[in-house]
Write a protein that binds this DNA or RNA. Structure first.
Lengths: 238, 238
DNA sequence: ACCTGAACACCGTTCAAGT
DNA sequence: ACCTGAACACCGTTCAAGT
């Protein structure tokens, strides 16, 4: 059943159409889009035999590269010509908003072994913002490493709080929280501190956007201080 | 061929032995240990039918959880009772050295949907260091989010520089570098800046340990400043 | 020359049959 | 009761056969 989906997709296959359908399929699978995605499922979605895809992409890896480039290409270029710090901040926040619309993308980008053209173009642009703002090539280089995947909007959290949290029953949650508090008292204390201004219970009750901006500003403020101090990689870091 | 490996592995199966063999198999597969690892390959390595594993682990997910706990359990507990900043620094650097010995581990940890017991115990210990150092529960909470996966030694780089870089021939590398410099001039400039004190060409020529410590110190210094300033999440961040 | 069905070499896991 | 072989429902990709 459901062999033929949308009739509009009966147009002749092309690399464009394959890539668009691939992104749409991954988007539709939500947070587990990276795992749920397969060549065979994509072919089925396009109403096509699996082998037909190989006329337009060399293999799955190349298709994933193409999907990454589509997503990274969505990131808005900076409009304001503000100081480097707000420009980079705004750039990274819009990268984050793109990643939030394609929840599979971070995992797929991480699986690539090297940068794709769109990623290189994006990094080139961010580097340009730092350099035009007066940062030395030396400092900019280390700063790009320090920001790392956060440049593309990665939260870099240890576990995905915004994901498919099972949301257990209040009774179960209470018992689990009590067990957790006994075994990991420091974790429990921190979780309680987080729950102060949030309504949710232990765990998923954090404001992802606040945590992202907190970490980003911590880094940008630090970078600004190094820049004003005339830091170089040969000078003592403290 | 090579049906029976090491004779010592003929001992009766146990959860312990399964987990140890799983870690050893992933280690042996190098950087691609996460992808190369499979239940069937592990069973073969143990000289056992695949189904035999399911007597000791519920499924592959639970086995991966167990592998993560083994690796995280290897992280050395802090010995010195120094100030919180050097204690956390030392703790994170030893987490990093463990991750460098198990190149598959970061990818597997990221694939887990929630923290395992050993990870919780580790986080509990780091939180304790911050709290004993005088940081508020509020600040500690946000700081733990900001450090994120770096707490476990993740480099958080966009692409793995230490991995299987193809190391192209000098001629190819030169041509590629010229093309890259034309398309992405800012990237090329930064790469050249990095190559100053390094012998390698564009790309993999960065000192991973330096970049890791640079980013870590950027964060720890920023945290220290917020702490001394009496920062709270309700106060203005700038 | 182009397209595609069957096939190959995998995978995690279920389940019934054998001991 | 325990163990395990065959089987199921996948996967990416090769390749030869059909048009």
């Amino acid at each position: 059943m459901a062999e033929e989906r949308r009739g509009a997709e009966r147009a002749p296959l092309s690399r464009e159409r394959v890539l668009h359908a691939a992104v749409a399929l991954a988007d539709a699978s939500g947070a587990s889009g990276a795992e749920a995605f397969s060549m065979r499922r994509l072919a089925q979605e396009l109403g096509v035999v699996p082998m037909a895809l190989y006329k337009h992409v060399a293999n799955k890896e190349e298709l994933l590269d193409g999907m990454v480039d589509m997503v990274v290409g969505e990131i808005a270029r900076p409009t304001t010509s503000a100081d480097w710090k707000s420009a980079v901040r705004q750039q990274i926040l819009s990268a984050r908003s793109v990643l939030l619309h394609h929840r599979w993308a971070a995992r797929v980008i991480e699986s690539r072994t090297g940068p794709t053209p769109a990623v290189l173009a994006y990094l080139d642009s961010v580097i340009g913002t730092f350099r035009d703002g007066g940062l030395s090539a030396d400092l900019t280089h280390h700063v790009m490493h320090a920001l790392g995947s956060r440049l593309l909007g990665f939260s870099q959290e240890l576990f995905d709080t915004g994901g498919a949290a099972p949301t257990p029953s209040p009774a179960t949650a209470g018992a689990a929280a009590a067990d957790l508090a006994r075994a990991y008292p420091r974790v429990a204390e921190i979780a309680a501190a987080a729950a102060h201004d949030m309504d949710s219970a232990v765990g998923g009750g954090c404001d992802d956007q606040f945590e992202f901006e907190f970490a980003l500003d911590l880094l940008l403020d630090g970078i600004e201080r190094l820049h004003h101090r005339g830091w170089t990689s040969t000078s003592p870091s403290t």
